[in-house]
C-alpha cells in the first residue's frame, strides 16, 4: 500500500472511532426528546427511539403540573439580570485592576484569587443565614446576588482584566488628552473595544445562572418562584418516583432552545469557555 492509502485508511478508522465515541454524547438528547413524546406505558415498555404513538399531551400536562411557564420566565429574567449586572461590575473592576495603579490593588487581587479557590459549598451555609437575616428567603435575590459577587463574578472580573491588560495603553491616554475622565475612558474607549470579552463573559455568565441548582434548591420553596433546573427535578409522583414522560418533555423544553442557540453560535460559545478556562 502506498503511504497515501495508509493515511486514508488511518483517517477512516479515526472517523469511525470518533463516531462511535459520539454516541453517548448525542444519544441522550435524542432519547430525551423521544421520551418526552411517549405515553407512560411506552416509557416502561420495550424502548424504541421513535415513539409508537406520539403523545403531544405530555407538553400540555407539563404546564398543568407546575407553573412551568412562570418558572421558565424566572430562569430567563434571573439569568439576564445576573448577566447584565456581572458585565457592568466585572468590567468596572477588571478595568481598574488592569489599568490603574492604586494602593491595595495587589491585596484585592489576592482576595479574588482566594474567592476562586474556595468552593461555594463552604460559604453557602453562612450565606444562607445572611440571606435569611435579610428576609430574602424564597425570593430571587440570592440567585442574583450570590452569582454576581461569587466565584462566577470573579472569573468574569479576571477575564475582563485580562482583556484590558492587552488593550493598547496609548489609546486610553489619547482619550485622557482628549478630555475624558476615567469613567469616560472606560465608557467611551475601553468598553467599545472590549466587545469580544464582554460577549464571552455574557455567554458563560448566562449559562451559569441558567443551570444553577444548589442555590435555588436551598433558597426557594414556592413553586411559582422555582427556576428551570429545580422545576425539572420536581416532576415526581406522590411516591417521589419520576413522572418520566412529563419530566422528559419539560427537560426537552428547557434544553432544546439552548441547544439550538449553541448550534448556531457554537464557535463563539466554545471560545468563551476556552477563554474562561484558561483564566481559571
Amino acid at each position: 500500500m502506498t503511504p497515501r492509502r495508509i493515511e486514508t485508511l488511518y483517517r477512516i478508522c479515526w472517523t469511525v472511532a470518533l463516531l462511535l465515541l459520539a454516541v453517548p454524547f448525542v444519544f441522550p438528547f435524542l432519547w430525551m426528546i423521544s421520551g418526552g413524546f411517549k405515553s407512560t406505558t411506552e416509557i416502561f415498555g420495550a424502548p424504541t427511539l421513535i415513539p409508537r404513538v406520539w403523545r403531544f399531551e405530555n407538553f400540555a400536562e407539563v404546564f398543568a403540573y407546575q407553573p412551568f411557564a412562570r418558572q421558565y420566565f424566572n430562569s430567563l429574567y434571573i439569568a439576564a439580570t445576573v448577566t447584565v449586572l456581572t458585565l457592568f461590575i466585572a468590567s468596572l473592576a477588571g478595568y481598574a485592576l488592569a489599568r490603574i495603579r492604586f494602593a491595595g490593588a495587589g491585596l484585592l487581587m489576592l482576595f479574588l484569587v482566594m474567592a476562586l479557590m474556595v468552593p461555594e459549598e463552604v460559604t453557602i451555609i453562612p450565606n444562607f443565614f445572611l440571606i435569611r437575616a435579610m428576609g430574602l428567603i424564597d425570593t430571587h435575590w440570592p440567585l442574583i446576588l450570590l452569582p454576581v459577587f461569587g466565584p462566577q463574578g470573579v472569573v468574569a472580573t479576571f477575564l475582563m482584566r485580562q482583556f484590558f491588560l492587552a488593550l493598547p495603553r496609548e489609546l486610553e491616554e489619547a482619550g485622557k488628552m482628549d478630555g475624558l475622565s476615567r469613567f469616560g475612558v472606560w465608557r467611551k474607549i475601553a468598553l467599545p473595544m472590549a466587545r469580544p470579552a464582554l460577549a464571552a463573559v455574557a455567554i458563560i455568565t448566562f449559562l451559569h445562572s441558567w443551570n444553577l441548582f444548589l442555590e435555588p434548591l436551598i433558597f426557594l420553596s414556592s413553586l411559582d418562584k422555582f427556576t428551570l433546573p429545580l422545576a425539572l427535578s420536581n416532576f415526581n409522583d406522590s411516591y417521589g418516583l419520576p413522572l418520566w414522560n412529563l419530566q422528559l418533555a419539560a427537560t426537552s423544553l428547557a434544553v432544546v432552545p439552548i441547544l439550538i442557540i449553541y448550534l448556531i453560535a457554537q464557535r463563539q460559545i466554545i471560545e468563551s469557555f476556552a477563554l474562561s478556562g484558561v483564566k481559571g
Binding site: 485592576l97 492604586f102 479574588l112 463552604v122 450570590l146 459577587f149 463574578g153
Partner: peptide, 27 residues
C-alpha cells in the same frame, strides 16, 4: 486617581466582603 480606582472596584469589593469574606469568617 486612587479614589477613582476604588470607586471602580467598590461594587466588587463590597459584594466580596458581604458574600465571601464575611461568610468565610463566619463559617
Amino acid at each position: 486617581e486612587m479614589l477613582e480606582a476604588w470607586l471602580f472596584v467598590s461594587p466588587t469589593f463590597i459584594g466580596f466582603l458581604i458574600f465571601f469574606l464575611g461568610p468565610l469568617v463566619a463559617i
